[in-house]
Simulated scan of single mutants.
Amino acid sequence: ALRRAGGRTVSGESAPTDIARADLVLDGIVGIGGKGGLREAAVPLADAAARSRAAVVAVDLPSGVDADTGEVRGAVVRADLTVTFGAHKPGLLIDPAREYAGAVRLVDIGLALPAEAAEAEALQHADVALLLPVPGAESDKYRRGVVGVAAGSARYPGAAVLAVAGALRGGAGAVRYVGPAGDAVIARFPETLVSDEGPKRAGRVQAWVVGPGAGDDASTVAEVLAAEVPVLIDADGLRLADPEAVRSRTAPTLMTPHAGEAAALLGVSREEVEGARLSSARELAARYGAAVLLKGSTTVVASPDGGPVRVNATGTSWLATAGSGDVLSGLAGSLLATGLSASDAGSTAAYLHGLAGRLAARGAPAGAHDVAEAIPAAWRDVRGD
């Protein structure tokens, strides 16, 4: 087709020079079966495309990335646009490969794709809207769910405040706080139910969030893990939790590590987790028998049953700010208290959190408290209100 249109082919040493003069580069070096990065002979072509002023369009996926995992194990093509066919590939949704794909457009070519065979899925507004809790006519604060937050310490009282901020905007009817930062929480959120006793004596709770800013309070973490309600474990709670106590739980459990925490739990380097997000989240979920929300440039949620990993599509780099994860934990814990499964609560919270981060920042720096305050707007955006 190219030759019929008057084009010509080149090869050998002149190819990189011709690419450097191009206005448009189509990358079709390898397809979805490519593994391990580009071969040596193709690297100069990718380098020439990167140095050129041409628009680079990848055919199905940028050559060199792993289509199935999003891993990058060598030189790859960096595209401005990827036109993919039939279905989105995990490598187009998950970092580090995602950053090489540019904008992604899907072309339907009529493939039959059974949902149960999916490796990964990315929720959209309509999916999340169906999961958001809506109070019924007979609802009261207890029927809507009560989330307990065991967080904060003398050194990190702000973690408790931010976790409660997220929890108050997650749909539960009440938030019950247990910990040493009660005065700071009440000063900011007087609607919070504060207890100066431990989790066992805190009163009615339908889900717990434990760990943000907890310092070395292992006894509170152990007490929460012994509760027969859904539990979210974050931050210091991940370090303090007895692995066997997590594995032996019968109620749903959601773990929310960032890459460094996940690396410590798996006994590998942070770089290994960041380079293999999909397999790292799956390994953690299988090892602990819990749903795992792995935070990062691409947030993924893996379930212990081995189903499709959910990839969050709303994240933004503006969420890389202190306390943002505490807000996410409170939000997800509140959704757990409303009755969502661990996987649904985690993926719904990540979606809303990402949208809130975008709304709070709008291209300028924003703090974690700004993200929390933007959650209602994100909620309305998802529901179309």
Score class of each variant (00 low, 15 high):
188 R>K: 09
338 T>F: 00
189 F>H: 13
200 K>C: 08
298 T>N: 04
168 L>I: 10
365 P>M: 05
339 G>T: 12
278 L>G: 06
201 R>M: 13
228 E>V: 15
237 G>S: 02
219 S>Y: 12
105 R>L: 11
63 S>C: 05
186 I>N: 00
318 W>D: 02
68 D>H: 05
82 T>N: 10
43 V>A: 08
40 E>M: 07
288 Y>C: 05
343 S>T: 12
318 W>A: 09
40 E>G: 11
51 R>T: 11
368 A>W: 05
262 A>G: 15
143 R>P: 00
299 T>V: 12
147 V>Y: 01
223 E>N: 09
315 G>T: 01
314 T>R: 01
26 L>Y: 04
338 T>P: 03
160 A>G: 01
127 D>K: 09
365 P>E: 03
243 P>E: 11
324 S>Y: 03
281 A>P: 04
149 V>M: 04
314 T>A: 06
23 D>Y: 08
247 R>N: 05
356 A>H: 02
264 A>N: 13
172 A>V: 12
110 G>F: 12
322 A>N: 08
195 S>A: 14
375 I>M: 04
376 P>Q: 05
310 R>N: 04
216 D>H: 09
375 I>P: 00
334 S>Y: 04
280 S>C: 15
324 S>P: 10
215 G>K: 06
54 A>F: 10
285 A>E: 05
251 A>W: 02
195 S>E: 13
60 D>Q: 07
100 Y>G: 00
377 A>Q: 01
81 L>W: 13
67 A>P: 00
183 D>V: 12
49 A>D: 05
46 A>H: 04
113 L>N: 15
338 T>G: 06
352 L>V: 07
108 D>N: 08
125 H>N: 13
105 R>K: 15
368 A>P: 05
140 D>V: 12
91 G>V: 08
50 A>M: 06
93 L>Y: 07
64 G>Y: 01
79 A>M: 13
220 T>R: 07
15 A>I: 07
55 A>Q: 13
337 A>Y: 12
51 R>I: 09
153 S>T: 14
64 G>D: 03
237 G>E: 02
270 R>K: 15
196 D>A: 14
356 A>F: 00
8 R>C: 15
96 P>W: 14
212 P>H: 06
64 G>N: 02
